[in-house]
Structures are given as C-alpha cells and as structure tokens.
C-alpha cells in the first residue's frame, strides 16, 4: 500500500493536482479578475493570469468606491467584520470558559437545569427562530450596533462542552495541591485553568473567528443601515448589481478576495492549530 509502482504513484499525484486545481480555480480566477480592468473579460478569451490593475482595483474597492454606480468603499465593512469576528470569538470563549468552569468544578442547585438550557442552544440556530429573535433584538434597541451584531449569537454550547471536556482532563490532585497552596476558585481559574487550556483556547479562537467573520443571515437582519454592514453580507448587493449587467465584476471580485483573505490567512498560518480546533469542536 505504501509506495507502490512508479506509474501508480504518478497517477495519484496527477489526480491530486487536478483536484486541487479544480478546488482552487474559483479563488484563482477571482484573483485574476481583481487585477484587471472590468472590460478585460466581457468579450474574447477569458484571461487566466493576473493583469496590471491590482493596485487600482484594490484602491477603488477599499478607499474610493465607485460613487457613480452607488458602490461604497468596503473599508468600513471590513472593519465591521473584524470587530464582529473578534468580539464573537473572544466573547464566546470568555462566556463559555467560565460556564464550563462552573459546571465542572462546582456542585450547586440548578446545575443540571443550567446544563440543559445551554444544551438547547445547539438546537436553535437563528433560522428556526428568525422573526422573534429579530423582534427581541429590535426591542432592546440593538439594531445597527456592534452589540446587536454580536451579543445575540454569543452563547455557545459547543464551546462550553469543549472546555468542560478539557477541564475533565485536569488532574484532581492539581486542584487539591492548589487548595493546599491557598488558592480559592477564582485564583485557581486564573492561575491554573487558564494557562493549562491555552492551546485549546487558541484553536477554538481560530474556528470562532472564521465563524464570526462568515456570518451572513444575522448581520443581514440586524443592519438596516449601511454603517454596520459586514463585508460578507455587503458584497451581495455589489454582486447583485454586477450580475444585472453593470460592468463592475472586477470590483466585486476584488471585494470578494478582501473578504476571504483574513480567514484564509488565519487558517493557513495556523493550520495545525486550526485542524486541531476543528476536530475538537466536533467531538
């Protein structure tokens, strides 16, 4: 099985290269388009290599916009996405970490009830409670705000259960040693549990950052004014106008590349941690 004849080995590599080419084609062509003037692919052969307009297009998309066509610069959308992704990732981790700590290291009344309430969130994605969630958020005055973009989706059963599982592997003797050394629960949390869970926190942060960055339906509901649009949902209006015939596909693709860049960069630069986080959250 390992090794094999040269011919079959080459075949495997060939299939893989073709497969990867197909998988990456959409991203590559989007990049190509983002470096060329909009007229380059309207007629004639489709270009397969980057063109000269890299700086121009990214400048237009980020800073100048295309006011004549009603295209706003997307810089602020990227900023909104960044804020949303960071707050969601950090918030979910913080909230879930302390919840898991409470569930793992305390026995108290309503412990089981609390567990079930958290568990229920697994079964209630935004899609199944869409109108009333919007109504609650609106009545709390959270529409068009960072709080509205983040707080309503900041609870996480998955993260809570993951942390609890991590905590269960911390030896009881460590807790006892810390108790004898005079550490109360909060000091134990800060001095022991947090540093011992660092890697898990980092892995989970990557997953949750991508989750937050890629949100679509929720920002669509909560932002009724352009000021708080995130790039992943904001690009949809650009694309709509482009597919209706306006000659701005190159700016749409420029924006698309900008929108996918942060998550891809994170996944690639921290691949080991990312894979670990992915596998852990699904356990």
């Amino acid at each position: 099985m390992v090794g094999g004849r040269l011919g079959s080995r080459l075949l495997v590599h060939a299939i893989l290269i073709v497969g990867i080419a197909v998988m990456l084609t959409p991203i590559w062509l989007a990049f190509v388009v983002s470096t060329r003037p909009g007229s380059d692919f309207m007629t004639g052969d489709f270009p397969l290599w980057p063109g000269p307009d890299f700086v121009k297009n990214y400048r237009t998309a980020l800073i100048d916009g295309q006011p004549g066509a009603g295209l706003q610069p997307v810089g602020h959308m990227l900023w909104n996405s960044l804020v949303m992704a960071l707050v969601i990732a950090a918030g979910k981790i913080a909230i879930s970490f302390i919840s898991a700590f409470a569930i793992a290291w305390f026995r108290f009344p309503f412990r089981v009830a609390a567990f079930w309430i958290i568990f229920i969130t697994l079964m209630l994605p935004v899609e199944v409670r869409i109108l009333p969630t919007f109504a609650v958020t609106a009545s709390l005055g959270l529409l068009n705000s960072y709080a509205g973009l983040t707080i309503p989706i900041i609870a996480s059963a998955t993260a809570t259960f993951l942390f609890r599982q991590v905590f269960m592997t911390i030896p009881d003797e460590l807790t006892e040693a810390a108790r004898i050394d005079g550490a109360g629960p909060l000091r134990f949390l800060v001095d022991m549990v947090v540093p011992l869970s660092r890697t898990n926190v980092a892995a989970l942060f990557i997953i949750l950052f991508i989750y937050g960055w890629n949100q679509y339906l929720w920002p669509l509901l909560v932002t009724t004014e352009p000021g708080y649009e995130t790039v992943v949902m904001g690009i949809q209006r650009l694309a709509q106008s482009a597919s209706e015939g306006s000659p701005y596909w190159h700016l749409v693709m420029t924006t698309a590349i900008l929108a996918m860049l942060p998550p891809i960069a994170i996944v690639l630069s921290m691949r080991k941690l990312f894979v670990r986080g992915l596998v852990e959250t699904e356990k």
């Binding site: 030896p171 003797e173 040693a177 004898i180 022991m192 540093p195």
Partner: peptide, 13 residues
C-alpha cells in the same frame, strides 16, 4: 499542613 501527592501534582505550566 503540606502534602506530597502520589502523582506529585506539580503545576505543569
């Protein structure tokens, strides 16, 4: 009091 544990329970970090 001070206690020495079977698995030592040293703080690994």
């Amino acid at each position: 009091i001070a206690m020495v544990f079977q698995n030592y329970a040293l703080y690994p970090h």
